[in-house]
């Protein structure tokens, strides 16, 4: 489903050129549960952004469901992000002036869904994530765990095939972190491919496949 070959990404940091990804090869099948681990600056977030089409490789090929991603323009990539990929971030990235329900609705609004359909799906999502009585609250009125649940609801509202999570528990306490992981794993049970970047080895061990990265290379893949 996801097939990366010889993906290379360089960054200019000051005078130095940093190789964030050195010719990475990776194949992911539908429904897999993968944890990407490694020290800071090892390129794990870059890899995740690459898979999520937020970043473009300098060289190499990326096939998503058999389609070459590297040749697509901004608009086509945006459409794929909208329909096939969901993002969950460490810092939630909820729009502060919008209520929980509106944040969840946002991707459907961008996609131009009908108001009725939007309302129905938001309602379902709020129920599914136990946020019904928090629908009208703004992010600053929600706890960290609730915020991340809103973020996950938003990431899944378009029913994507792939869920990308960058340190999803990095900003949460243990209990709500566990909560969030349970939700993500439950989504994975429904055949959504889950790729998670994490520092936490304990979290990483829960994944069926663990990828360790060092210096922009895949060091181990079990």
């Amino acid at each position: 489903m996801i097939s990366l070959s010889r993906i290379r990404r360089e960054f200019q940091v000051g005078d130095e050129r940093v190789l964030a990804l050195r010719d990475v090869d990776l194949t992911v099948d539908t429904g897999e549960y993968i944890a990407i681990m490694g020290p800071s600056g090892s390129g794990k977030s870059t890899l995740l952004n690459m898979i999520g089409l937020l970043d473009r490789p300098d060289s190499g090929t990326y096939l998503l469901e058999g389609e070459d991603m590297t040749t697509l323009n901004d608009k086509q990539q945006a459409a794929l992000r909208r329909h096939k990929i969901g993002f969950v971030f460490q810092f939630f990235h909820l729009v502060p002036r919008m209520s929980a329900a509106e944040n969840i609705e946002l991707p459907m609004m961008l996609a131009g869904f009908e108001a009725g359909e939007r309302k129905r799906r938001v309602h379902e999502a709020l129920e599914a994530f136990g946020l019904t009585n928090r629908a009208r609250h703004r992010p600053d009125q929600l706890s960290g765990g609730q915020r991340q649940r809103v973020a996950i609801a938003r990431a899944t509202i378009m029913q994507p095939h792939i869920l990308l999570a960058d340190e999803p528990t990095g900003n949460l306490d243990r209990v709500s972190g566990k909560d969030v992981i349970d939700i993500l794993e439950a989504l994975n049970q429904k055949n959504i491919t889950l790729i998670m970047v994490t520092h936490d080895p304990e979290l990483g061990r829960r994944a069926k496949r663990q990828i360790h990265m060092v210096d922009g290379r895949i060091d181990s893949d079990r």
């Binding site: 901004d74 945006a78 459409a79 992000r81 971030f89 990235h93 946002l106 961008l110």
Partner: peptide
């Protein structure tokens, strides 16, 4: 975020 959830430029 808008870009990540699928808004083109």
């Amino acid at each position: 975020l808008l870009k990540a959830i699928g808004a083109p430029g």
